[in-house]
């Protein structure tokens, strides 16, 4: 394996991990409501930008990061409470359009509250590259990979081992039956927005030291995360992770070996290809309803 290949692979895994976190956010909300939340990218932006302004006002990372995550989660909860819930009973398409509106609104608000400039966050632990098999990896990339792994493990514990997680899974499969065993499905939807927003914020904070952040960083990251979720199969947790990593690697490989001009196009080519040839994605539900 050439050092160059190794370098692309490591970079790909790093961006891929970010896409995976965004894709997980899409999947969690999709499972609770079958809504594709196009404001997911804005949660990523809020995480990064809030951390920038909190550290700018003198707070250390130890405080600024948790506060930024909480802020994004609150925005997510507010979005559900004030934009999605009032439209309850509306069709899924209507709800999706509401989330598109919300994303434009949040982006505009960010531009007013903060500004239109690019901001950099300091890397969490220095910026001396570490050499691995001839390639160089930034310490921040290790943070990205480590935190993503920890989150994936925590989520699989949450959905696999806690009753609240099972209640959310149950709701995703059959709302009626879930309600009739006493699960408040509206509460599940509310929580899923908070959880997705927090995941998005973590992604935005982790990537900000590498790629910079600004009020509109959520547009591209949101779309890439969406592509990753589609590739993995909407609603599948493992699919979101694999889809994110695969998309990240595909992107850096094509940028490296073909042309970096096509880097962003890869995600959209993948969306189209998946929708044409395997609409349920790699790990999505297949086939019809059992009767």
């Amino acid at each position: 394996m050439s050092a160059q290949f190794m370098q692309y692979l490591l970079t790909g895994l790093t961006v891929g991990a970010i896409y995976a976190l965004v894709a997980l956010g899409f999947s969690i909300i999709f499972n609770a409501s079958h809504v594709i939340n196009f404001a997911q990218g804005e949660f990523v932006m809020i995480g990064g930008m809030a951390t920038v302004s909190l550290t700018g006002s003198g707070l250390p990372y130890m405080l600024a990061i948790p506060l930024a995550i909480v802020a994004a989660a609150l925005v997510g909860l507010a979005l559900e409470k004030f934009a999605v819930e009032p439209a309850r009973g509306a069709s899924v398409v209507t709800l999706i359009i509401i989330t598109i509106g919300a994303s434009i609104f949040l982006r505009g608000l960010a531009m007013v509250v903060w500004d239109k400039r690019l901001h950099a966050l300091k890397p969490f632990t220095g910026d001396t590259p570490i050499a691995i098999a001839g390639a160089a990896i930034l310490p921040q990339s290790l943070w990205v990979l480590g935190v993503t792994l920890a989150i994936v493990l925590a989520l699989s514990w949450f959905f696999g081992r806690t009753l609240l997680g099972k209640a959310m899974l149950a709701t995703s499969h059959n709302r009626l039956a879930a309600q009739l065993v006493g699960i408040n499905v509206r509460m599940v939807l509310f929580l899923s927005f908070g959880l997705s927003a927090a995941l998005g914020a973590v992604a935005g904070i982790l990537i900000a030291p590498i790629t910079l952040t600004s009020y509109d960083v959520g547009v591209m990251l949101g779309l890439k995360g969406f592509a990753a979720a589609i590739l993995g199969g909407l609603g599948s947790g493992i699919g979101a992770v694999i889809g994110g990593l695969a998309l990240g690697i595909a992107e850096t490989m094509s940028a490296g070996y073909l042309s970096s001009a096509y880097k962003d196009a890869i995600a959209f080519v993948i969306i189209l290809a998946v929708l044409f040839f395997m609409p349920s994605g790699l790990f999505g539900k297949r086939g019809g309803e059992r009767v």
Partner: peptide, 25 residues
Amino acid sequence: LQVFFNMSALENVMVGRYLHERSGL
């Protein structure tokens, strides 16, 4: 039938315990 086909049989019954074993997030 309205069964949660995305889970095991045992987990289906466990979800039924949700009301009584609920612990907040």
